[in-house]
Nucleic acid binder design. Structure first.
Lengths: 143, 143
DNA sequence: TGCAATTAGATTGTACACAATTTAATTTAA
DNA sequence: TTAAATTAAATTGTGTACAATCTAATTGCA
């Protein structure tokens, strides 16, 4: 039953379910993030800002695996929403320091329910979720 | 050490490594797909077309988890490249039938090396890859 | 029959995502 | 010490992604 083109079948790919799952899971966040008036990418950026308060664009990009081409407009949007401020560093004017505002910190409490709500939409067993977490981190290290 | 905001830390998310891994792995395809002059999304669309030869936009979208908003421009691009043709169905004019061309089929042989080359860039053990494959399909079913 | 509901694609608008290039600041090394 | 190299962001251009809306074809049913 095997033919030479089997390796090109969608069902034999590892990348495709990764790509599709990521999209579908991110979509699950939408109704809950809509309540906070932010997108998924803005949400993960805020996660880093909530934890660290202040951070360069470059460093933020290293956390999120995103470059300035994505982050510059995204951070301008977050600034417009009043969630962060953007200012050049005094020590090194090349660096742009992003700081979370009081309003940004206030959003953290509203966001607290999001992970729970999303988990409620995804009926993956705890053991599978843990195993997946481990494997994804392993994969992340070798790409 | 635990605090009430732990659930909002990037490191405690399952979705984030999924999102980041998907992006990083898709990026690995780029140099090899550049040789075929197609993008990753175009590649997975061609995978379905290579296997099925003819297909409605709707059905193709069900395979790829993409809607007409994404597929319409993508298929127009593939048509411009000469890899597929697009034509309304005679039986039901609402349906647009996508068909792979000879040139499209010829690309299949050039693509044959892609999965191997990408696998060569990702040093994940075979057992882990298999386990990840199973878990992603399990996750796909419950989102 | 004939009109409302449904369906398939296309379109519009917003938001990433990233490669490639540009600009400005800083560092380095001759 | 100053010109070259490096660095951090911003910009530009292309290509997804997707929600919401629109259009046209078909179906269902009163």
């Amino acid at each position: 039953m095997a033919d030479k083109y089997d390796s090109l079948k969608l069902e034999n790919q590892l990348c495709f379910p990764l790509y599709a799952c990521a999209k579908e899971v991110v979509k699950k966040y939408k109704p809950f993030l809509d309540e906070l008036d932010i997108t998924y990418t803005q949400y993960i950026a805020m996660m880093v800002m909530w934890e660290h308060t202040k951070m360069n664009v470059k460093e933020l990009g290293e956390y999120l695996f995103l470059d300035s081409g994505t982050l510059t407009p995204l951070l301008k949007t977050l600034e417009k929403k009043g969630l962060v401020t953007r200012a050049r560093s005094k020590e090194d004017e090349r660096n742009l320091v992003v700081s979370v505002t009081d309003e940004g910190m206030a959003l953290r409490d509203k966001a607290l329910e999001v992970p729970k709500k999303v988990a409620g939409c995804i009926q993956l067993e705890e053991a599978d979720a843990k195993e997946l977490y481990v494997l994804l981190h392993k994969l992340m290290k070798c790409v």
